[in-house]
Design a protein around this nucleic acid. Structure first.
Lengths: 207, 207, 207, 207
DNA sequence: GATGAATGAGTTTTCATTCAT
DNA sequence: GATGAATGAAAACTCATTCAT
């Protein structure tokens, strides 16, 4: 029937696109944007170079698509992680746990993601930077409001601006994840989220 | 005499080298490694391009020298900061303060430094990465031993592995410094080091 | 019946071909051969690119067909213009008038036509050039014979080789038409053909 | 000595530039702008392709330089031709003669020149077009004023607007030169300028 | 018979590096 | 010892043409 034939084409297109992005991810995360040639990506994805350009206007467009789609996915998952549980402390625990999972499932993407969010990219593609930051900013505010509510409810002490607490938790989890990334055996990502939370939140809880 | 003439030459050479590195730093930190041409650096430093190659084997060598020398300088200053004061808490306070000073005095270098230490460089120059990390590792161990001694002396609670506490403090100071870098008016780097220390160390102190 | 069905198909084909050529003409005359992509032509003509290739072997073939068919049409009209009137002077007058009409009705074609007849095409397609020239040569000879007869009849003075007179008249009408093409208000194509004829033929008539 | 060494470099540069332009002219006039690759020009001029780009910002710049410099030269020579003689008729004779000389000495350049001045280039490089036209317009006005003075002095009849007479003479000389270009033996460029002048000017002189 | 997705050769341009002066 | 002109490899991107559906 006709109504199945059109989605078929769509699906096929999407699959090809994914294959291209996947090849690009692997290469970019390994060698960096400037050290990957479009021809390499095409070859790895097993398409002709012209086909690549049918899907992405240019190298920058391919790169941005890759980063943006993944960054969006990550922020979505993390936002969900601090949305689902009721209790504030549980939200934080869930954040630490889910972040660990997301991280370990997407290691090569993570490299690119941090390269982008951490100023490393020299703003060569300033608008990409700003798009990602805007999105991530929303997540950080959501995380901040978890601290805020926890403080209001008296679950946390009022130690610092909730936004700064969010930043602190974020940066510490990142730091531990990088540690783990570099030497998984020596520095395993903590099984229990409390190992990390203790460092940031201990002061908020006890006293 | 001859024994004064040679040091003179040496000194002159060193000054030239510094001028080259200085021009390179400005350009790299503004545009990124791949978007700076050797010719640009030569022009900015007011040397011929051939002269640049007398001092550095190639572009990579120039880049590495730049990063390494600065990273070394930073680690030296930070190590000093946690060496001088006697008291462990004072050491941490001094670390936070000095890091803020070093950071704000070397903003363009900082961009490059973090690009390197935060995986952003995609291991393009893997050996550079490892040299910097080795050096920085030493500093982190020194910082960790501050926590360790503090714990032993009973000044801090035994909340977590001292090394992880060092990592935590490092990553949080970095996070706040980046925040400040991006929007100095909205997020000023805390005047008092305790604002930051409270977040990480509160749990260690009080309870 | 079948004998009507086949011509129907033929006619349909011809109509499609015309639509393709028409789209191509518009694009080529606006942007030049090398700056028009086959895909553009297909899109403008509302056919698939593959269909284009059913009608024309390749881009060059399409271009040549376009030029040749139009050039043929023009020469036919001009030949008619110097055939119909009896009197030699009337023939010339009619030539100037009809040429002005043909020109203004086919401005975009004219651009291409002259690009071809005036050496502009750099012999990229040398054989096209020669075909057009051969055809146009015939017209010029016809025009020359008008002068010849006029001279024999004593209507014109024997000022120069009739063929050269034809060339002269041709080039002057072209020059005025280009003038008009570039700035129609400042240099309107003369209402009366005698304005042009006077310049070329005055010497032949009076004296 | 030093004061000779610097001009030496300059001279060398200029010679190289001329060699590049000369190779480019040959190729462009033979194959057309779009069918010549920068690599071809470099090879023909016996330079590396990078050296070409030291002298010309890009392909368009090279092309424009070539056209503009030559067009300027031509107009200069033609302007001189109608400036030197006192008598108006002598001026016209000199124009026809010099134009024939210039033409035959620069045949391959002529192809490009006319491709540009005769709308054939589709205004791909509209500003080049306008620069050349502006310059050539000046020459045409100078030629027109020769007719104007001749008419005022009563040497020519007042047959048509002097500017149009200039256009007519221009286009006829071009036509004859193209004729000669295509078949030098059959259509030699007239030894005596009067052969051409008779056609255009006869009406102005006699009557 | 029509379609348009896929192809990849070919083009322009940049820039690290060398080496004759 | 310094210079900077010359080099050419390498990269992004386009588009005429083919052919499976």
């Amino acid at each position: 029937m006709d109504n199945t034939k059109i989605p078929r084409r769509e699906r096929e297109k999407l699959r090809q696109r994914q294959e291209m992005l996947s090849a690009a991810l692997e290469l970019f995360s390994e060698k960096g944007y400037h050290n990957v040639a479009m021809g390499e990506i095409a070859e790895k994805a097993e398409f002709a170079i012209g086909t690549l350009y049918k899907f992405f206007r240019n190298k920058e467009d391919l790169y941005k698509s890759l980063i943006l789609e993944q960054a969006e996915k990550f922020d979505r998952e993390l936002t969900l992680a601090i949305t689902e549980p009721q209790d504030e402390i549980e939200k934080l625990r869930n954040f630490v746990t889910v972040k660990g999972e997301v991280f370990s499932e997407n290691i090569s993407m993570i490299r690119l993601y941090f390269a982008e969010t951490r100023g490393a990219s020299f703003n060569i593609m300033a608008d990409l930077d700003s798009q990602i930051r805007k999105r991530h900013e929303q997540f950080l505010k959501a995380l901040a409001s978890v601290f805020e509510k926890g403080i209001k409810k008296g679950r946390f002490q009022n130690i610092a601006d909730p936004y700064y607490l969010a930043i602190a938790l974020e940066s510490i989890t990142n730091a531990f994840l990088f540690l783990w990334l570099e030497a998984p055996e020596i520095h395993p990502y903590p099984k229990s989220p409390d190992t990390i939370l203790n460092i940031v939140v201990k002061g908020l809880l006890e006293s």
